[in-house]
């Protein structure tokens, strides 16, 4: 059951590097192999001591069982058996809820490649069904917040005020880190708030609900589901889908810093070349 894990993991670790693995990488690889061996030993132990877990498995739905399978393959080394957590490696996932899994796994942040300041968004390793199965497993394991069913973006035809209210809430709660234009921003010591340009409504909802990484949690008592939907409406309709009316390029909406670069790179450069042409010999 765990026999292919080390190979897969190693492949994943090394496929990112362009050069031959460094010493640190080799050591890391060794650690991974060690872990895999331990996990294998654990797996063998499980096979010979089926007692307690067999009962748990009975309560899991079919989807959750699939999820457990995936969890035991890819997540168990850091989050521990039954998502109880491993000290200094990964937190317990009891009670984090399906929303958290869908966000972390759906955006590719989990599984993490290595321990670093902040898990980076990357290509998801699991497809949508697998993510749902994993989420289902964690949900059934310990409960926790879930993304509600139904449309997460308000319909402006029937609720035209949602956009402005969402904007107001966005500026109160979100812009300090993600920026007025949703372009993201730096946090302390290499951490950052990601850009919201390609965040899906589900991801935004899950992030607010669960507070991934260093993001604060915005529980349903603080921002009601309606308010969350309004914020999502503002982000998707105003920040993601609306074309900027002020020009062909919006300079990333990063504010005066890119505008200052543009005035030198385009304005001054264009005019200096014109001046060179004017004064050059004909």
């Amino acid at each position: 059951m765990t026999s292919d894990t080390p190979a897969k993991r190693r492949l994943r670790v090394f496929s990112r590097g362009r050069k031959a693995p460094s010493r640190a990488r080799r050591r890391f690889g060794a650690a991974v192999r060690m872990l895999a061996a331990l996990a294998l030993a654990g797996g063998i132990y499980t096979a010979f001591a089926p007692g307690a877990f067999a009962e748990d498995n009975r309560q899991l739905s079919a989807a959750a069982l699939e999820g457990k399978q995936l969890f035991d393959n890819s997540c168990i080394s850091c989050h521990g058996r039954d998502a109880q957590g491993v000290d200094d490696k990964g937190p317990s996932l009891i009670g984090v809820g399906a929303a958290s899994v869908e966000f972390q796994v759906g955006t590719g942040r989990m599984p993490m490649v290595r321990q670093e300041a902040q898990a980076e968004q990357k290509k998801p390793q699991f497809d949508e069904t697998q993510t749902k199965q994993l989420a289902q497993y964690i949900q059934e394991l310990g409960g926790g917040p879930q993304i509600p069913q139904g449309e997460l973006v308000e319909n402006l035809e029937s609720n035209p005020e949602a956009l402005a209210r969402g904007g107001e809430l966005f500026r109160v709660n979100c812009t300090s880190c993600h920026g007025f234009g949703g372009g993201g921003g730096a946090l302390s010591s290499g951490k950052f708030a990601p850009a919201l340009h390609d965040a899906t409504p589900e991801q935004i909802y899950a992030a607010m609900l669960t507070g991934p990484q260093n993001m604060p949690v915005f529980g349903d008592n603080q921002l009601t589901p309606d308010e969350k939907r309004e914020i999502i409406t503002y982000i998707t309709l105003q920040l993601q889908q609306d074309r900027d009316p002020g020009g062909l390029f919006n300079l990333g909406r990063y504010g005066p810093s890119t505008e200052g670069v543009a005035v030198f790179l385009v304005g001054i450069t264009l005019l200096v070349f014109t001046a060179l042409w004017i004064a050059g010999k004909s």
Binding site: V172, N173, G211, P216, V217, F218, G219, N221, Q222
Partner: peptide, 11 residues
């Protein structure tokens, strides 16, 4: 108090 979840903040 119950309006703010653990790990949450409000202005």
């Amino acid at each position: 108090p119950e309006d703010i979840s653990t790990g949450g903040q409000a202005t």
